[in-house]
């Protein structure tokens, strides 16, 4: 049995998820909580945002993000992969900076035109 707080809406229900019983969820005030609780235990995903070094722009860092959410356990690997990257201005918001970062089905894309 795992306890967690549902973050789908501001109410923040305290959920209990039973891994041994097909991830059945209790404590949720609505069905969205049940789905959240299940996914959160089976396959938690997170968006990652960070910055990379940029040359030739007004500022020194270019904000970036993953194009879609990645498995939670891969977060550190993804951020690590950014340390050695330097991009050159001009760059457009949405430009792909690293394809399939850390072997995920997500790219690192620029979040700002610089």
């Amino acid at each position: 049995m795992k306890e967690m707080i549902c973050i789908v809406c501001p109410k923040g229900c305290h959920l209990k998820v039973d891994e041994n019983n097909d991830y059945s969820v209790t404590g949720n005030a609505c069905p969205r909580g049940a789905e959240y609780g299940k996914n959160e235990l089976k396959n938690p995903m997170r968006m990652v945002t960070s910055t990379v070094k940029i040359e030739g722009a007004l500022l020194r860092r270019c904000p970036v993000k993953t194009s879609v959410a990645i498995p939670k356990g891969k977060m550190f690997e993804v951020v690590q992969a950014l340390n050695s990257v330097t991009v050159k201005s001009p760059i457009k918001c949405g430009d792909v900076i690293i394809k399939n970062v850390a072997g995920c089905e997500a790219d690192i894309i620029s979040a700002k035109s610089m």
Binding site: T49, P63, K65, C93, A111
Partner: peptide, 10 residues
């Protein structure tokens, strides 16, 4: 959509 701060500003 869920945007980052710089994207929202842009």
């Amino acid at each position: 959509e869920e945007l980052t701060g710089p994207e929202y500003a842009q």
